[in-house]
């Protein structure tokens, strides 16, 4: 079943607020081998001008994917999650995320295209802080493999 191209352009509601925590930053940093002290040492982060410890460059994917989940689960989109493969990921950081940021993610289906029996869905997620200032634009392309 190809993905329904009519959902292109659809925007989903913002996710509930998520608070970036020092503990979660530390866990993610340790999981990807990120040893820069700005992730775990408050003094090191402050000495470089950050308000608190800094999230690693790919940290926000989990928040972005909370937004994307609404698109993926939209019954009108017809996305078969069991055939979904992550094809591409991009982050544009408008400023680094730091512990204490309270953020929301708003996902838009930017593009749906069919190629070679597969569907490619591009989702753009705007992550903003509590003052609605942009923090990060996360773009992902997922491939929904066609039936064999």
């Amino acid at each position: 079943m190809p993905v329904n191209a009519e959902v292109e352009g659809r925007t989903y509601p913002p996710t509930p607020p998520y608070v970036v925590s020092r503990a979660k930053i530390r866990e993610l940093a340790e999981a990807v081998g990120a040893t820069d002290p700005v992730h775990t040492d408050l003094e090191a982060a402050r000495s470089k001008g950050y308000a608190d410890v800094v999230a690693p460059p790919t940290f926000l994917v989990s928040v972005a994917q909370q937004g994307e989940a609404q698109a993926i689960l939209d019954p009108e989109a017809g996305i078969d999650f069991s055939r979904l493969v992550h094809g591409e990921q991009r982050f544009v950081h408008h400023r680094p995320a730091v512990a204490g940021d309270e953020i929301t993610a708003t996902t838009r289906i930017d593009r749906v295209r069919q190629a070679g029996g597969h569907s490619m869905v591009t989702m753009v997620t705007e992550i903003a802080d509590g003052q609605a200032a942009p923090l990060c634009t996360a773009t992902s392309v997922v491939v929904i493999r066609g039936g064999e």
Partner: peptide, 25 residues
């Protein structure tokens, strides 16, 4: 994706200075 960018962060000396990062899997 997260592990690979550490090569850049180590060289740069500040993870907060990665402005954009994109990959294709």
């Amino acid at each position: 994706m997260g592990a690979a960018v550490q090569v850049v962060v180590d060289w740069l000396g500040d993870a907060g200075k990665v402005l954009e990062y994109a990959v294709r899997f």
